[in-house]
Amino acid sequence: MAEADILTAIAEILTADGNVAGLAGARVFAGELPANEAGHMPRNAVVILPSGGVSLAAGSFLDHDTQRIDLFSYGATPFEAEALRRLCRRALVRVRRRIVRNCLIHWIEPAGGFTAGRDPDADWPRAFQSYQVFHALQEV
């Protein structure tokens, strides 16, 4: 049985959400912003990255775990980046026991507050929020 790809599943959740797609279109990426997108920035886009953090399943023998993720939303303006972050939050926190891309996700919750500013390298407007995701480790 294959390992579930939680980042790709989360990207699909966001891409399928009509509100997020209304701002970002198909520009929701797991792992990093593709090089061919950089020339078009700053514009609305979302990047989902794995992050560190404590596992809520530590010490158990579950075939489930929690994964902390960091969500970066970009926009042409700080207002657009923050608006996109809010739409992403709404889409993610509504997930309850759902299978996406063969990945069983039990829940997605904010892992703290949000922040906004500019990308330190490219100076693009962006907003940021972390989430904790409880999911099955193996595909279903």
Rank of each mutant, 00 (worst) to 15 (best):
7 L>Y: 11
7 L>G: 14
7 L>E: 14
10 I>T: 07
12 E>I: 06
13 I>H: 09
13 I>A: 12
13 I>F: 10
14 L>Y: 06
15 T>M: 07
15 T>F: 07
16 A>K: 13
18 G>Q: 14
18 G>A: 15
19 N>E: 12
20 V>T: 10
21 A>P: 04
21 A>Q: 15
22 G>Q: 10
22 G>T: 05
23 L>A: 13
30 A>N: 04
30 A>I: 04
31 G>A: 01
34 P>S: 06
35 A>K: 13
37 E>D: 01
37 E>Q: 12
42 P>R: 08
42 P>N: 04
48 I>F: 02
49 L>R: 11
51 S>V: 09
52 G>A: 04
52 G>Q: 07
52 G>L: 07
53 G>H: 10
56 L>F: 14
60 S>F: 03
61 F>L: 12
61 F>D: 15
63 D>Y: 10
64 H>N: 08
68 R>L: 00
71 L>P: 00
73 S>H: 01
73 S>C: 05
74 Y>N: 04
74 Y>M: 03
75 G>V: 10
75 G>H: 05
75 G>I: 14
77 T>E: 09
77 T>P: 13
79 F>N: 11
80 E>V: 07
80 E>A: 13
81 A>W: 04
81 A>E: 04
84 L>P: 05
87 L>Y: 07
88 C>Q: 06
89 R>K: 11
92 L>W: 04
92 L>R: 03
97 R>T: 09
100 V>Q: 14
103 C>E: 14
104 L>Q: 13
104 L>W: 10
104 L>M: 13
106 H>Q: 13
106 H>K: 15
107 W>V: 03
108 I>F: 00
113 G>T: 15
113 G>K: 06
114 F>K: 00
116 A>N: 13
117 G>K: 05
123 D>F: 08
123 D>K: 14
124 W>V: 02
124 W>A: 01
125 P>M: 03
125 P>G: 02
126 R>S: 01
127 A>F: 05
127 A>H: 03
128 F>V: 05
129 Q>G: 07
130 S>K: 00
134 F>T: 09
139 E>I: 10
